[in-house]
Design a protein around this nucleic acid. Sequence first.
DNA 1: CCCCATTGTAATAACATAACTTACAATGAG
DNA 2: CTCATTGTAAGTTATGTTATTACAATGGGG
Lengths: 144, 144
Amino acid sequence: MQFSFRMPVAVQILLCIAKFDGVFKTTSTFLASSVNINPVIIRKTLGQLKAAGLVKVAAGVGGAKLVKEPREITLQEIFNAVEEDEDLFHIQENPNPKCPVGRNIQQVLGNKLSVVKNHMLDDFAKITLADLLNDINTAEQNRQ
Amino acid sequence: MQFSFRMPVAVQILLCIAKFDGVFKTTSTFLASSVNINPVIIRKTLGQLKAAGLVKVAAGVGGAKLVKEPREITLQEIFNAVEEDEDLFHIQENPNPKCPVGRNIQQVLGNKLSVVKNHMLDDFAKITLADLLNDINTAEQNRQ
DNA sequence: CCCCATTGTAATAACATAACTTACAATGAG
DNA sequence: CTCATTGTAAGTTATGTTATTACAATGGGG
């Protein structure tokens, strides 16, 4: 069980825009070829990133640009932009109310797990797009 | 997007065994009625918990017992018992190798996210079955 | 030693979610 | 006005999870 493609795809989109803006026209088709995914998915994801204030997209003309500097964009913002704000784990919705465990499990386990999720979001907040861009560039250098 | 029912179900099973062992016979049907889920799912989950050394199950006779004390059973053990050991996020498997972002994204983002996952597991390690049992009992008292 | 409730397990169906694809109206610079 | 591109909807395919049914294997109790 894993999270979906969405967040990693969004990260890759933003990295490509950061790296290629000004060099190539960053259309949904261009971005789709880097991720190797359907352009419609890119357009949907760009829409979510736009709504979150991370990019602006030129309808008609084509191409996307970052609204903020890479060091000001965190993985937390990206995650929140593309994932529903829901609990990390799916706790049984209809446990037996006659059982003392069943009638309290949601509250008790939910409390503990929400703390864990908040820690995860804190971790995401410490990772910026600039960090990832830097790692990409380092990896490219080592490749040569 | 969330994790499946599995870990919360396993937690509820273990809590029920801890609370009712000796009082009721903790068969898969009994446990299923607390979670309000199919007994076959309970039996599968019990099998995973047995393989992880957390419970012993009496085949033929019926009923399950904890192998360790509740304070010695952590959420991390339960999580590892029932979830595959895979990455938290699903990073595109076939990015474009001709794109400098595409050919490095798996390694670069994967590294960052594995750190986050390890933090999550560390958090799980700090939560014991005894903590949850205690919270259940407190919630029950407040209910009266 | 046999009975019977129960476990262990397989096979299949039902359901939910995600991704793919096609299609097309709306956009806006040239 | 043209045309590449975005935004969006609808339908399909693929995948994963849970539910359900079925039945052989188990093992204490009568």
